[in-house]
């Protein structure tokens, strides 16, 4: 019975960085429990479109296949999400796949997410532990705080929050929710907090935190359920305090 059942995919494709996107339709044999990635693999095996013409296989990114790496994000039926956890049984037919338009398209569904990795470098999203000598153990982190921080550390740089944000677009240089929440994570770490003011000053720069318009799409869209808007509001308070400290003066930079 399942031999006759098919699923339809309408995929937005793009051959090169600058070429115009176009849509191509595929009809695939249905298999139980198939997800978007297994469908794309099916097209890879047999790259024939719905008109029966031979075509090139679809290009897309993937890695972990269990929604922890963030590589396979794409816009599925209008919503950005990971294609590995997008089960075809739960999707409306035809399934529409498109690349995340916030990022430069490399080819088909494959996008260049490097702006997010650049942002992480910009905000120093790490704990500096290197010195010219052994610095020893850092201050202890309370266990309950660690458990809370773990939620923020689940960010996989998938780009869904940037795609959903109305203020991240070609007209604005907003850094986006992803790296802002990482500032909160690393500022919360007892050793990371030693460079708290540097991170805050970075996000107080152009294209930083102040560009958030509170549409709160990010927190609604985050596949990891990271409290992005709580992070942003908390950073708003931190930067308020930092700016008062900067202006009214203090003879020390950080607690």
């Amino acid at each position: 019975m399942s031999e006759n059942k098919t699923v339809r995919f309408i995929i937005t494709r793009q051959d090169t960085l600058d070429s115009a996107p176009y849509e191509e339709e595929f009809v695939l044999p249905y298999r139980p429990n198939m997800n978007v990635i297994s469908a794309l693999m099916e097209i890879q095996r047999n790259p024939v479109n719905a008109k029966g013409e031979k075509t090139t296989p679809i290009a897309w990114d993937m890695n972990c296949l269990e929604e922890v790496c963030g590589a396979c994000s794409m816009v599925i039926n209008g919503k950005p999400r990971q294609s590995c956890t997008a089960l075809v049984d739960k999707l409306e037919q035809p399934v529409r796949l498109a690349p995340m338009s916030t990022f430069p398209v490399i080819r088909d569904l494959q996008v260049d997410r490097s702006r997010m990795f650049d942002s992480l470098k910009r905000v120093k999203a790490w704990i500096p532990i290197d010195g010219t000598y052994d610095l020893g153990a850092g201050p202890r982190m309370p266990e309950r705080k660690r458990q809370w921080a773990y939620e923020l550390s689940k960010c996989m740089t998938c780009g869904v929050c940037l795609e959903a944000c109305p203020n991240v677009n070609s007209k604005s240089d907003f850094i986006g929710p992803q790296s802002l929440s990482q500032v909160r994570l690393f500022n919360a770490h007892p050793t990371g907090a030693m460079n708290k003011d540097e991170r805050l000053h970075t996000i107080m720069g152009d294209g930083g935190l102040a560009n958030c318009g509170n549409s709160q799409n990010c927190v609604q869209s985050c596949p990891k359920g990271i409290p992005l808007t709580t992070s942003i509001a908390a950073l708003n308070r931190d930067t308020t305090i930092q700016s008062f400290r900067d202006f009214f003066g203090s003879d020390y930079q950080v607690d």
Partner: peptide
């Protein structure tokens, strides 16, 4: 929100 007065959801 912008001034960090209301943080929690």
């Amino acid at each position: 929100v912008s001034w960090g007065i209301t943080i929690s959801p």
